[in-house]
């Protein structure tokens, strides 16, 4: 899932400085389960903003609404009236949610309340770790289900650098060495042969390096102009 963190209140306040009426929009999907931008967090942010702006002597009218998914038109269409009623929208969606609202409501001023951090999973309640960079060409089949692009600080494809020591990465003792994990996993499965061959340079054109990406599935398109 997408993992995000709320921006500092000061920063959000500076983003909404010129507005009187503010709508905080939460999202019920990824950012709800990572406790960054769901209904509860939207409520906390709205309350915090009301109190803080009041203390600053210029109280703002801050309301909140949470939609099931900010990344689908149908859901953000449902809050049309609330959006049209305010000066500024603080989206607590990921970067996709912010852009979806901005795209759907061209006149609305939309600012982000979160920093979208990474694609990851909660390894325990309250701890999230990055697992994928959406490079567009998955190699997990070669690496025992452990991604060296997302989890090695140097994105190495042919084994660990010299900084791997006692299972941890040289950049941070809290970061496991991805290649140690890959080695241990494949060794335990008797599949070390998978990493003995030289992996050629990666094709990064499927990643962000190839420019913004787009997938079109003609078999799924319903729009009238698409069928012609």
């Amino acid at each position: 899932m997408i993992v995000a963190e709320q921006k500092p209140l000061e920063e959000i306040k500076s983003l909404i400085a010129d507005a009187e009426k503010v709508l905080v929009v939460g999202c019920g999907t990824c950012v709800t389960v990572c406790f960054a931008g769901g209904e509860k967090e939207a409520g906390i942010l709205a309350s915090s903003l009301r109190m803080s702006t009041k203390l600053d002597g210029a109280p703002k009218e801050v309301t909140q609404v949470t939609v099931q998914r900010q990344c689908e038109w149908e859901y953000i269409d449902a809050i049309k009236d609330q959006i049209n009623d305010v000066d500024i929208v603080v989206s607590l969606g990921c970067g996709i949610g912010v852009q979806a609202i901005a795209e759907r409501y061209p006149k609305a001023v939309v600012v982000p309340g979160l920093n979208t951090s990474f694609l990851g999973l909660p390894t325990e309640q309250g701890v999230w770790e990055e697992r994928c960079v959406a490079c567009g060409e998955c190699i997990l089949g070669l690496t025992g289900g452990i991604c060296p692009i997302a989890r090695c600080a140097k994105q190495l494809l042919n084994g660990p650098c010299g900084g791997s020591q006692n299972g941890v990465c040289e950049i941070n003792p809290d970061t496991p060495c991805a290649w140690q994990l890959i080695y241990d996993k494949l060794a335990s499965q008797n599949r070390l042969h998978l990493i003995m061959d030289i992996q050629p340079p990666k094709n990064w054109s499927t990643s962000r390096d190839g420019g913004p990406r787009k997938i079109t599935r003609e078999d799924l398109r319903l729009a009238a102009e698409a069928s012609e």
């Binding site: 906390i44 915090s48 109190m51 803080s52 203390l55 600053d56």
Partner: peptide, 8 residues
């Protein structure tokens, strides 16, 4: 921490 950010 939140209160500190808010100014309380």
């Amino acid at each position: 921490e939140l209160l500190t950010e808010i100014g309380i």
